[in-house]
């Protein structure tokens, strides 16, 4: 191929892409006023989500039992016992009322552990249950789709039990919620999460990876730090640094880990952090900050 061919090829890119590029992408930088509004609305959102988190914790303290006539898995791998939700597949939930069916689905999304069997790389519910709030039994299908395995340190990771059974480090209790958005502010990126635990693992990876700004922070000869804030006021920092093809991650305790996937250090960092997140809480606010320039 010659250069002329390539330029002609770019000339011939589809019209819809050309039109799209002519559109105006919102700037990622904000005025002080907007920042203030965002901070205020963010605080309100966090407060609401904290409350929601408590409610969820309270309602999801235990899984819906199959003996409860309000939510029964009538078909699929979870048949007869919601706690048997361990594998990708399709479950049919029969429920008299919406709330119980949704509770089941939420539980199924949240937990991945049943008995002694721990399932890895599972599943996300891709279709929300919407059921009329009626006294008549209603059947709905909960599809499962297999997602990429969650790998950390070169081995497949298991999901952990619900967060209330696990504390790390110490007895931090994190309820800071807001995810799926990444906002570039000056030289850093805020990434917040509002997914439940399973979604945090699976979708959170995408949320991180979809944040272009993270990729845009330079790696060549540079690095950046990630600061995880807990709602008790403490925080923990991780620092990624290195040169092309060789990256290290320094934990706050000073330990340094060599990144194995040198071609995708960003991904490995994400997975590493996800591993940390799983241990502590699905609700995380992380601040990605350029450390050395890139």
């Amino acid at each position: 191929m010659k250069k002329d061919d390539l330029t002609k090829g770019i000339d011939a890119v589809d019209d819809d892409l050309i039109a799209e590029a002519a559109g105006r992408e919102p700037k990622m930088k904000y005025s002080t006023k907007v920042k203030l509004i965002r901070i205020l609305t963010g605080a309100a959102a966090v407060a609401a989500m904290v409350a929601t988190g408590f409610l969820l914790k309270a309602s999801l303290g235990k899984p819906p039992k199959s003996s409860d006539p309000a939510a029964i898995v009538t078909e699929g791998k979870g048949s007869g016992d919601p706690e048997a939700v361990t594998e990708p597949g399709t479950d049919t939930v029969t429920s008299a009322v919406t709330s119980r069916a949704e509770e089941y689905v939420t539980y199924a999304k949240t937990t991945t552990k049943a008995g002694t069997k721990t399932v890895t790389g599972v599943t996300t519910v891709t279709k929300a249950v919407t059921m009329p709030d009626t006294d008549e039994p209603v059947t709905t299908t909960v599809p499962w789709t297999e997602e990429r395995p969650f790998i950390y340190n070169g081995r497949e990771q298991t999901f952990y039990p619900p967060m209330k059974d696990y504390t790390y480090p110490g007895d931090t209790s994190i309820t800071n919620v807001q995810f799926g958005t990444a906002v570039l502010r000056d030289r850093g990126v805020w990434v917040n999460c509002s997914f439940d635990q399973a979604d945090c693992i699976l979708n959170g990876i995408s949320a991180f990876q979809n944040a272009d700004e993270i990729e845009d922070i330079g790696f060549d000869g540079g690095g950046f730090c990630v600061k995880v804030f807990y709602d008790d006021g403490t925080s923990r920092e991780y620092e990624l640094f290195g040169t092309l093809g060789l990256y290290y991650l320094k934990d706050q305790d000073g330990s340094i880990k060599r990144m194995k996937d040198t071609s995708g250090a960003e991904n490995e960092l994400v997975w590493y952090l996800q591993g940390e997140f799983v241990k502590i809480d699905p609700y995380i606010t992380a601040f990605f900050e350029e450390k050395y320039g890139g």
């Binding site: 061919d5 390539l6 002609k8 090829g9 770019i10 000339d11 011939a12 890119v13 589809d14 892409l17 799209e20 590029a21 559109g23 992408e25 979809n210 272009d212």
Partner: peptide, 21 residues
């Protein structure tokens, strides 16, 4: 050129919107 345009378009569609813009 048209075929190459199609291939490049296909590549761009796999990118994030912001990146391809």
């Amino acid at each position: 050129a048209a075929e190459l345009g199609r291939i490049i378009s296909s590549f761009l569609r796999q990118q994030h919107k912001r990146s391809r813009m």
